[in-house]
Structures are given as structure tokens and as C-alpha cells.
Amino acid sequence: MTKLTLAVTTVLMLGSCAESPTGRPQLMLFDNTQVNKMGIQTFEELKTKTPISKDKKTNQYVQCVAQAVLKVTPQKYQTNPWEIVVFESDQVNAFALPGGKIGVYTGLLLVAENQHQLAAVIGHEIAHVMAGHSNERLSSNQAISTTLGVADVALAAMNTQYKAELSSAFGLGAQVGLVLPFSRVHETEADVIGLDLMAKAGFEPEQSVALWQNMAKQGSGGTPQILSSHPVPENRIKKLQKDMPSALAAYQARQAQGGLPRCNK
């Protein structure tokens, strides 16, 4: 069973290897055009289910910050205009989807206290798209599903009274050992890329730490990191602080050019 599972996993891993913007090896099994279509479809469905803010000043503010960050992304992400929508919701969240879509919930604007903190969130979300995390997550889920399917077949052939327990253990092991850490890798990588984006766009990178301190106050903080899909705020802040010197250098270089973003909340 182990040999068969490893064989299937190896085939999947060799299927389409790529590299993230930070140099991390990635498994990409899906065509990016297909993933973009999925992102666009998801966004259109969300617009039919969630009220869209009509407040002119709020929309101008979010557009100002998002466009400033988008201007420093690689050229291929600037070929087509992004659709940026503000959703009326108490959710403290934002997202970016493949296909050039950005959503910001009004609840986030109560926690992100200024343009710099909002840029930290938007930069983080755009980073997910730049790093192909949606494709990678879909590919990872496909690989895990295939491997667990092979394991179930092998368990079915075993003469043991513990088939059900073993099958459940395989599923839990994949969730805790692969899926959740994999998501935390994505979040940390998006933090790193997003910090660089906001600094190059002319937003104060130190404000990213203040943002996550604000975020920490919103959550219970009771979930152990090993069982969380996101890094705990303390670890997130430590990583941001570690990368702060290079971000400050990028911000100072941008500051020397003049014309820093002035997006009024």
C-alpha cells in the first residue's frame, strides 16, 4: 500500500512542477486560463449574493489603495484592468481572485485604520494571485484525493478489523499534516510578497504589524497553530518584523521618488 501510494504521489508531483515568486517549488496541475474562469465565476456569484456598497467616498478610497498596489505588480497583472468591489458586510476580510478580481468588505475598514493598513491587506490578497495559490490548492487537493483513494482501495483488501479506523486516520493525517500547513505556507508567503508590494507602492510597511495587532484583537486566539489554516498573529508579526529591513529600504526608495499615495479614508 505504501509503495502504491508513493508511486501515485510521485506521478502527480512530477506532473507539473512550478516555482512561486519566493522560489518555493509548487505543484500546478490546472491550466491558468481554467483557474481564471473559476475565479471570475466565483466573483460574479458573490456579487449576486452580497450587497455592494454604493458609498462614493468608500469606493474611491478602496480604489485608490488597490490601484496604487496594482501599479507595482509585474506587468502581466496590469495588462487587463482589475475589477474592485466593496461589499457591504461586517466581515473583517478582503480577497483577490484569479481573473483580476478584488473584493473588500466594509467590516475590514473598521479594523484597517488607515491607507497603509488597508494596503497591507490588499497587497497580501494580490500576492495570493501572483503566487498561484488557487491553482496550487486545487492541485494539492487533487493529489491528496487521489492518494487517499488509492489508500482506501488498499485498505479494502486488507484483512483487518481496523479498516474504518485506519481510513479515518489517513484522512485526519492528510488534513493536519498536509492541508492545514499547506495553507499556512500560502499565508506566510502572501505576507512576504504583500509586504514588498505595499512598500514599493509607497505605503508604510511598519503599518502591516499594526494591522495584524488589530486583527489579533478581533479573534479569540484559542486555536492552536497546528490546527489552524492561518499562522497565529504572533508568528505572523515576527515574520513581518524579520522582513521589515528590506521592506523599509523599498519604501524609502519609493519615498525618494515623491508622489506617495494619499488615499483618504
Results as ranks from 00 to 15, higher is better:
E136R: 01
S228L: 10
L14C: 15
T33Y: 12
A154L: 14
T5I: 00
I52Y: 03
V129M: 03
M28T: 10
Q257P: 08
M215D: 07
I144F: 05
G173E: 05
M1Y: 05
D55E: 10
N93E: 02
G15E: 00
A18Y: 08
M198W: 05
K3C: 04
S183E: 09
V62R: 03
A18Q: 09
I122W: 00
I126H: 06
K163I: 09
H124M: 01
M38I: 05
E165A: 15
L211R: 09
L211H: 10
Q41R: 15
L148H: 07
L109W: 00
P74H: 06
I122M: 03
V72Q: 03
V121E: 02
P81K: 05
P21W: 09
P231D: 14
K56D: 03
L70E: 02
V192R: 14
M38N: 05
D152S: 04
V232F: 04
S183R: 06
N135K: 07
F170C: 05
T146A: 01
N36T: 10
T106N: 02
V65R: 11
R262W: 15
V72M: 09
A18R: 11
K54I: 05
L108K: 00
M1P: 04
V65H: 12
M158C: 08
N32M: 14
D191Q: 05
T188A: 14
G222T: 07
L195V: 10
E234V: 13
Q142L: 14
P261F: 01
Q252N: 12
P245M: 08
Q75V: 14
Y61S: 00
A120V: 08
Q241K: 12
P231R: 13
L180M: 11
V8D: 02
A253N: 15
T22I: 11
P51E: 04
G222H: 08
W212I: 13
Q175R: 13
I84G: 01
T42I: 13
R24A: 08
